[in-house]
Amino acid sequence: MTRPSSTLLTLLLLATTGAALAAPAPASSSDPLPTITRRGPGDPSCARPVYPQSSLRNNEQGRVVLSYLIGLDGSVLDGKISRSSGHPELDRAAYVALSKCLYRMPDGAQEPRWMSATYVWTLNQ
């Protein structure tokens, strides 16, 4: 039997210095970056994405790269799928789950910032 296992591979945080709705851009090494303040088991606001049943039936796996605009209060203001896993249901599940997280902006942040998150879906055989 195939057993689902979703793994948060990497949260790559990228800040922008442009307008609040500008596309994500790599941060300079000195830019402070947003971080997740709520995460993990038992926190329904930022729970691990649930493997979609249709994706389980079809043995779908993949890596999705998401981009989120984080507001000064830490909430997600905007987001997009930057690179698809090739499976729309996996992309959607990761996007919805990670967009519910609350992020902590760096001290002194004066404008929203973009961050990227990579989520990897794998099936344990």
Rank of each mutant, 00 (worst) to 15 (best):
W121R: 10
D73N: 15
A25I: 05
I70M: 07
N59E: 15
G108N: 04
M1H: 14
D78M: 10
R57C: 02
R48P: 05
S67K: 06
T37P: 02
D73C: 10
S5V: 13
P112C: 03
T10G: 05
C101A: 12
T2G: 04
G40N: 10
T118P: 00
M115I: 15
Y68W: 03
T118R: 12
S116F: 02
P26M: 09
L123F: 05
A23S: 11
G62L: 00
A109L: 08
R104W: 00
Y103L: 11
V76A: 10
T16A: 06
I36M: 11
V64G: 06
V76W: 00
S30R: 13
P106H: 08
A93I: 09
S84F: 06
L8D: 11
V96K: 07
R48N: 11
T7V: 14
R92E: 15
L90N: 08
R57G: 06
M115R: 07
D43S: 03
S85R: 02
N58T: 08
L14P: 02
N124I: 13
E111V: 01
R92H: 15
S85H: 06
K80T: 10
A23D: 12
L72T: 08
G42F: 05
P52V: 14
Q125H: 10
S54L: 03
I36T: 02
C101G: 06
S84P: 05
V96A: 06
C46R: 06
S30A: 14
R38I: 03
A97E: 03
D78A: 15
A109Q: 13
A15L: 03
E111Y: 01
A25G: 07
W121L: 10
L12I: 11
G108D: 05
Y103P: 05
R113P: 00
D91K: 07
D107K: 08
L21N: 14
A15P: 02
Q53T: 12
S85D: 08
G62K: 05
L90A: 11
I70D: 07
V120L: 12
R39K: 10
D107S: 14
Y119P: 00
S5K: 13
P88F: 10
V64M: 14
Y51D: 02
R48V: 11
Y103T: 01
Y103D: 04
A23P: 03
L8K: 09
T16D: 15
D107A: 13
I81K: 10
S85K: 07
P49I: 08
V50Y: 02
P41L: 14
M1S: 14
Q125K: 12
M105S: 04
L123M: 12
S30T: 15
G108K: 01
M105P: 09
V96E: 13
L102K: 15
G42M: 06
L66H: 05
L56T: 04
S67T: 09
P106M: 06
